[in-house]
Computed example of a mutant assay.
Amino acid sequence: MTNRSLTASVKSRFLADRMIPVRLDFRLMAVVFAGLTAWLLLAMIMKNLIHGAEGSAASATSAYYSYTVRNTTRFFEGVMLIGLLTLLPQIRNEELKVVARRIYSRNRDALTAAPFMVLAGVVSFGLMMSSYSTVKARIPSIVPFAWDDTLAAWDASLFFGTDPWKLFEWVYEIPPIIITLDFLYDVWAALLVGSWITCFVATGIERARRLRYCLSLMMTWFIGGNLLALFFSSAGPCFYEHVSTDPARYADLMTHLHSLPALRNTGMQDMLWDTFKQDGIGIGGISAFPSMHCATAFLFVLMFGRTPVWRTITTAYFVAILLGSFILGWHYMIDGLAGAAVAFVCWKLGGLAVARIYPPEAK
């Protein structure tokens, strides 16, 4: 027996005995982990070359894994709730046990592989965020905030001298709208993690498309969240009074926001600035340009907007995040537009890369 036939025999025996779930996508995992390892090495080299940077030895890896697990749980709780609601008509006519058995028999391979793929997704996402934050949290130490005045001026020039948030000043008088934007901005974290995990477990989506999304997200966060954020080091409107030459420019905006005690976003902004002042390396870091919220939301459109219904849902969500980014004081509007542009370019680059890995499937 040749080595090749022996390998094939052993592999078929393992698959037959379900020792290795047949739905494990080793190629996707190999490419993703290879890219993330390279990113982490670059981030560590960059960190070690920064002499005297605050928090040079600190790490938020454990915090990001906690963040990943928490938001994975939130995402799948929502998915399960929606799934149960869609199954209600069947459950009314049949016992839940019968429905569950039928679903399992139809999706046995995928369900067998799911725990392994979810674990791979959680580990890889935590690795990505650790790599990203290793650089982002140290941006002010590498390049002090210097672009806020310029970005604010560019923002105003888009609307003939008026800061974009002022065009929506009426919104602050309608708390339900602001609270909704605040919720959508907050739930973005669960959607970000969930979309990543989905690409590991959703066997109904082509492998090429799932890998394209993962690569595009990685490139978007590396190019936009690390490289461009370093070059255009900026803090954003909510921190404008601390870093600009005109501290009062966004004072009215922040007054509006702090007058609404139900918002989560103002508490998060205060926490980030307190962490920054203490030279801590916690989750997040401070960086305005480009907006990763908007970039990721635009990738949702490109990845999941494949039908008219989903295109409408994802586009509406992107618009809400874009508006919320400056209405809630996190970003200048130009940050969001730049984030979408970076995401679009990275989606195209991801398509070119995947065409070499999955030639028959790449689109």
Rank of each mutant, 00 (worst) to 15 (best):
V193W: 08
S244T: 08
L349R: 07
G339S: 08
D163M: 08
L15N: 09
G194I: 14
V342F: 03
S131C: 10
A63E: 03
L36H: 08
V31Y: 06
S9E: 12
T73N: 11
A248W: 08
R101V: 02
V301Q: 08
F160E: 06
N71W: 15
A38T: 14
L337S: 07
T203D: 14
I20C: 03
A53Y: 00
L119Y: 06
L88Q: 09
A251P: 03
A248H: 13
L184D: 07
D148W: 01
G305L: 01
T220F: 07
V342P: 03
M218Y: 09
W310L: 11
G225K: 04
W221A: 11
L349C: 12
T255V: 05
V123C: 09
L215P: 09
A343T: 05
I327W: 05
G329P: 05
G267C: 01
G339N: 05
C294W: 13
E173I: 02
G285W: 06
C294Y: 13
L88W: 13
M29T: 12
I179P: 09
T112N: 10
E361W: 05
V69E: 10
W347Q: 10
R356G: 12
S62N: 10
A355E: 05
V342S: 02
G204E: 13
F289M: 03
H258K: 11
I334H: 07
A43G: 10
I82L: 15
P360K: 11
L28Y: 03
Q269E: 14
F304S: 10
M303A: 12
L158S: 01
T73V: 15
W273M: 14
I20V: 15
N71H: 15
M46I: 04
F183Y: 12
I357M: 05
C199S: 14
S5E: 15
R207I: 03
P115M: 09
F116C: 01
A43K: 04
I334P: 10
W330V: 01
V243E: 00
S291Y: 05
S157H: 10
N71I: 05
A120T: 01
T312P: 10
R102Q: 07
I313M: 07
D279E: 13
R264D: 11
V243H: 00
E54A: 15
I327L: 12
D252E: 08
L227S: 02
A316P: 07
K11T: 11
E173T: 13
D335T: 02
E206K: 14
A202W: 14
F239W: 14
V354C: 11
L260V: 09
K348N: 11
L42M: 11
P176V: 02
L322E: 13
L227Y: 03
L85E: 04
A189Q: 06
A156R: 08
L299H: 09
G339M: 09
L191M: 04
Y213L: 12
A341S: 07
